[in-house]
Simulated scan of single mutants.
Amino acid sequence: MSVHDTTHAPEAARETVDVDPELFATEWEKWHRDKDARLASAHGFLAITGLHWLSAEPQGFPGVPGTWSTGPEGVAVELDEGTELVVDGVAVRGRHLFGVIPERGGVDAVWGDTVIEVAKRGGNDIIRPRHPGHPLRVAFAGTPAYEPDPRWVVTGRYEVFDEPRPTTVGASVEGLQHVYDAPGRVAFRLDGRELSLTAFNGHAPGSLTLLFTDETSGVTTYAANRNLTVEAPGPDGTVVLDFNRAVNLPCAYTDFATCPLPPSENRLPVAVEAGERIPHERGPVD
Rank of each mutant, 00 (worst) to 15 (best):
T6W: 14
T6N: 10
H8Y: 15
A9K: 12
P10L: 11
E11K: 15
A12L: 10
T16D: 08
V17F: 08
D20G: 12
E22V: 15
L23I: 15
A25R: 07
T26W: 13
E29F: 11
A40M: 00
A40Q: 00
A42R: 02
G44Q: 00
L46A: 06
L46Q: 07
A47T: 03
T49V: 10
W53M: 01
L54Y: 12
G63K: 05
T67D: 09
S69E: 11
T70G: 08
G71Q: 09
P72M: 10
A76F: 13
G82S: 04
V86F: 05
V87S: 07
G89K: 03
V90S: 00
G94K: 10
L97K: 13
P102H: 08
V107P: 02
D108N: 13
A109H: 01
E117F: 08
V118P: 10
K120G: 03
D125P: 05
I127W: 00
R128W: 00
H131Y: 12
L136G: 05
A141L: 08
P144A: 03
E147N: 02
E147A: 04
R151I: 10
T155Q: 15
Y158T: 09
E159N: 08
V160W: 07
E163N: 14
R165S: 12
V169L: 10
A171C: 07
L176E: 01
V186S: 06
V186P: 08
F188L: 02
A199W: 11
F200H: 13
N201C: 12
N201H: 14
A204K: 15
L208N: 09
T209Y: 10
L211A: 13
F212A: 07
T213G: 02
V219K: 03
Y222W: 02
Y222Q: 00
A224Y: 04
R226S: 04
N227F: 05
L228S: 07
V230P: 11
V230L: 07
E231Y: 13
E231F: 14
A232W: 07
P233Y: 03
D236Y: 12
F243R: 06
N248H: 03
P250S: 04
A252P: 01
A252H: 06
D255V: 11
D255W: 10
P260R: 04
L261C: 01
E265P: 01
N266W: 02
R267H: 03
L268G: 02
A271G: 02
R277Y: 03
R282N: 11
G283C: 09
G283S: 13
D286W: 04
